[in-house]
Structures are given as C-alpha cells and as structure tokens.
C-alpha cells in the first residue's frame, strides 16, 4: 500500500490530471483503509471551496486614497 504522503500528492494530481489505472487503484485502495487521509481530503476540499469565496473587505483609508489621487491624477493629463 502507498504511504499517506504519496497518497496526498497523488490526490493533488488527481484534481487536475488523469491518473494511470495503477495510480488510481493505489490511491483508492489507500483511501478506503486510511481514516486520516479521508479526513484530510474532506477538510482540504472544504478549504478549497472556501478559498474561492475569500473576501477581506479591506479598504484604502481616506488619507491613502488622497495620496493615490495625488500620484495618479497628474498622469491623466
């Protein structure tokens, strides 16, 4: 059986590429038996979905916006 580290990397590749039949079998077999890897995959899938929605609601301060205008506006001609 492949180790957890190898399973993690194969799982990563599987998200983007088609694995060989042997690689797919090795990964699936590992996942059936490894509770920690199943848990890791579930958590990572959730993180990936969350990352796509990441929003920080950061803003320029009024002072920073003023500085930005001072530097950018003269270029407008």
């Amino acid at each position: 059986m492949i180790c957890c580290k190898e399973a993690g990397i194969l799982g990563e590749k599987m998200g983007e590429k088609k694995l060989s039949t042997m690689e797919t079998f090795k990964l699936m077999y590992h996942m059936v038996w490894c509770k920690n890897c199943r848990r890791f995959k579930k958590q990572i899938d959730w993180i990936n979905r969350t990352l796509k929605q990441i929003d920080l609601d950061e803003k320029f301060t009024q002072e920073e916006k003023g500085d930005l205008k001072e530097k950018v506006n003269p270029e407008m001609g």
């Binding site: 180790c3 957890c4 580290k5 190898e6 920690n36 890897c37 848990r39 890791f40 958590q43 959730w46 993180i47 969350t50 990352l51 929605q53 990441i54 929003d55 920080l56 609601d57």
Partner: peptide, 29 residues
C-alpha cells in the same frame, strides 16, 4: 514510513466551526 505522524495527523473538525464568516476569512488569509 511516510504515514501520518501522531502530531501531524488531522483531527476531526466540528461542523459548527466550518462557517465562512468574515472573521474566519481573516484567519484563513
């Protein structure tokens, strides 16, 4: 041997923590 170490293995996450709040987004970032 390449298997999860005792300290490195993932713990179970409770669903009540798996919320996409603004506070969580900052921790994630």
């Amino acid at each position: 041997t390449g298997h999860w170490s005792k300290n490195g293995a993932p713990n179970e996450w409770t669903t009540d923590k798996m919320v996409r709040s603004a506070e969580f987004m900052h921790v994630l970032n």
